[in-house]
Computed example of a mutant assay.
Amino acid sequence: MRCLTAQRNFTESLAAYSIVCYFLQIKDRHNGNVLIDDQGHIVHIDFGFMLSNSPGGVNFEAAPFKLTRELLEVMDSNSEGQPSELFDYFKVLIIQGFLACRKHHDRLLLLVRMMSKSGLPCFKAGDRAVKAMEKRFALQLTEVQSVQMVLGLISDSLDAWRTRQYDYYQRLLNGIL
């Protein structure tokens, strides 16, 4: 496989992963739970913490999604989000993915509502978990305002301090690089 194809696969799957992490509030996103397959795709392997629960009950991961220096480097960018063809492509994919999810928010929310009484730990906040997810769709915003909001989410995620600290904690405590 060519390196450029793997980089593109990585960028596309990272964009999809980022959107899913944002809407479902997936936590515990340390490097031991985020793998890369032999074609460059991101694979998250642990969905134990999402929506309203967090590891240790502490919501340490505040960034909308994981966008560390290492992930940016694969897209030929840096911790400041230096423009590159792949990072610009990532931003376009995030925007398109967000807008597509907004169009289908009713179906996505219905799936979560159907599970909300399941007793799963991610629904410990009850209906508040569903309402919080609904709020993340930003339905009160126009499409143009939504694009600006998504660019803000990307900016907030860029090499976020708390994300770096969580990876550092996992490296010290569990030896996870």
Rank of each mutant, 00 (worst) to 15 (best):
V150K: 02
F10L: 00
H105R: 15
G175E: 10
Q140E: 15
M115V: 03
T68C: 13
M1A: 14
I42K: 01
D88Q: 12
A132W: 06
R107Y: 09
D76V: 01
T68I: 13
S146F: 05
R102W: 09
D46G: 05
L172H: 09
A125F: 01
F49T: 00
L158S: 09
F65R: 07
P83R: 15
P121N: 04
H105L: 01
V144D: 15
A63K: 03
C21V: 14
M75S: 07
I154Q: 01
F47V: 07
D76F: 06
R136I: 05
V58R: 14
D159E: 10
G40K: 06
P64I: 02
F65T: 07
R29V: 10
I42E: 02
R162Y: 12
R107K: 14
Y169T: 10
M114G: 00
F10M: 02
K131N: 11
L71T: 01
Q39G: 08
L67E: 02
N59T: 09
L67R: 01
E134V: 06
F23Q: 04
S77I: 13
L72E: 11
H44V: 14
Q165H: 05
E85S: 12
L173S: 09
G56V: 11
H41G: 06
T5F: 03
N31T: 06
F60E: 10
T11I: 08
I45M: 06
M115S: 11
T11V: 13
V144H: 09
S116C: 12
M114A: 07
A16Y: 04
V144G: 04
F49N: 00
A63T: 03
Q145C: 03
C122Y: 03
D88E: 15
K91T: 11
L93R: 15
L177A: 13
S146M: 11
Q165R: 12
A138C: 13
M50V: 00
C122L: 10
M50K: 08
A16D: 09
E134G: 15
T68V: 13
F90W: 03
E143K: 10
F47Y: 14
K66S: 10
Y168Q: 13
S155T: 12
K66Q: 05
D38G: 08
P64D: 10
D156Q: 15
I19Y: 01
Q82P: 00
A125G: 02
E12V: 09
L141S: 02
I26E: 02
C122D: 01
Q145V: 08
K117N: 01
L151S: 06
L86E: 04
E134M: 06
C122K: 02
P55T: 05
K27A: 15
D46A: 06
L72W: 07
F137M: 07
F60S: 08
